[in-house]
Design a protein around this nucleic acid. Structure first.
Lengths: 150, 150
DNA sequence: TGACTTTGATAAGAGACTCTGACTAATTTG
DNA sequence: CAAATTAGTCAGAGTCTCTTATCAAAGTCA
């Protein structure tokens, strides 16, 4: 039996996905902190990221972030105290409340968006336009079978 | 100026990377648990994953996982109690100790490897052989600029 | 060599995150 | 309407992570 040549990378696709994800998140977090948005934690940010423009229910946030309702509630409490979100009654269901973006979150958003664009530009410069586009396309396809909320 | 069409996906590349990563990790974790390897946590697993075949120093594990040495030590303590790793003196530096894989970790490895292979096969079936290969290639390239330990 | 700095690791304590279980209130269903 | 489901909260415990401080071994350099 012929000896197979060792592939250029022995890392699992999982770790290969994780490394750039973590790099991006760290960059965004660092820039936000130095821009004065240093009063929230990564866990809070991951929930905040999921709040839609018209508000999102706690259960929905918990589902998307794959944490329990209790944990989501705990994190939203803190985001609320720090002025990033408000809780409004949901007109369509009196049991529910909508978590809505507050002023401070709307101020942070463009800062975060700028960093994401910057990092993505660096990636595109390294990979080339073609490969970057293919990467996003493949990841979008992959989302169909890996994101329960796609 | 012509109005640009809305891209097919509005998700940031970061979230697109995260979703399949999380899906893979969850699958592996679930299968390991149902195979009897249910006595470690995700945080412990992320450290265990980094232990090399010849042992790895605590500081190295902490660096790769991007956690503090103290946190890494805390997690290794628990992995040691559960029988997944041992700590051996490092012959080349009497300050250091090598975290080494123990019997239980060697037993879990093939189970984990099988699930990873299974999930990657599903992804390849969805994307096609060509796109899957391109995806891994692009991610490997991206690692050059996003992994400080590449 | 001997003082100084760096590096590997640990200890103590506090804060943050997350879970399970139990509960209330509103809605949906049969 | 009664039963089951769904949205959310409360209480408590366990886990994870950090900061600060300390010790011991190794490296640096005058």
């Amino acid at each position: 039996m012929a000896t197979a040549s060792v592939p250029e990378s022995e890392l699992s696709t999982g770790l290969l996905l994780f490394l750039p994800y973590r790099a991006l998140e760290s960059r965004v977090f660092a820039v936000l902190a130095s821009a004065g948005f240093d009063d929230f934690t990564p866990a809070q940010a991951r929930v905040l990221q999921r709040v839609g423009p018209d508000g999102t229910r706690l259960t929905e946030l918990a589902g998307q972030a794959q944490i329990t309702k209790q944990t989501a509630g705990f994190l939203v409490d803190q985001l609320e105290k720090a002025g990033y979100v408000t809780r409004e009654p949901d007109p369509s269901d009196r049991r529910a409340r909508l978590v809505c973006l507050a002023e401070r979150a709307r101020a942070a958003q463009p800062v975060a968006a700028r960093v994401v664009a910057e990092v993505e530009a660096e990636w595109e410069a390294h990979l080339g336009k073609r490969r970057m586009a293919q990467l996003r396309q493949s990841l979008t396809l992959l989302r169909e079978i890996t994101d329960p909320y796609a």
